[in-house]
Write a protein that binds this DNA or RNA. Structure first.
Length: 106
DNA sequence: AGATTGACCGTGT
DNA sequence: GACACGGCCAATC
């Protein structure tokens, strides 16, 4: 029986890996799915400290308003945006079109 | 063990 | 519609 924190962290990473290509999820959404709807901030911490972007597509995680926030790899948000465009995510100016590309969890 | 920070979110002015 | 403030959660120093 692990502490709640480890479960939360594990869930966040697991969920992040479940985000399909061409879709994005908000920090709050990941937090909610992980069991703490208010832990959006903590999710950001996990993404920043994420073990590996190959196992945790942190680039598919954006702010609730669709804006791209920090990125621990490449050139930061610039690289993140490029990757999302590569994935086929719809963009509106400098933000993601959540109406079209927000992850509709199964 | 205590205090501070941080890739956020919601509400108010 | 834009700017400012507070609140929550977990990790890090």
């Amino acid at each position: 029986m692990k502490t709640s924190t480890e479960t939360f962290t594990a869930k966040v990473y697991a969920i992040a890996q479940k985000i399909p290509v061409g879709k994005v999820a908000t920090y709050g959404q990941l937090a909610a799915l992980a069991g703490s709807p208010r832990a959006a901030r903590a999710v950001g911490e996990l993404m920043k400290k994420n073990p590996d972007r190959s196992v945790v597509p942190c680039h598919r995680v954006v702010a609730s308003n669709g804006a791209l926030t920090g990125y621990a790899f490449g050139s930061g948000v610039l690289t993140k945006k490029e990757i999302l465009l590569q994935e086929g995510v719809s963009f509106v100016g400098a933000k993601v079109d959540l109406k079209k590309s927000q992850w509709n969890r199964s």
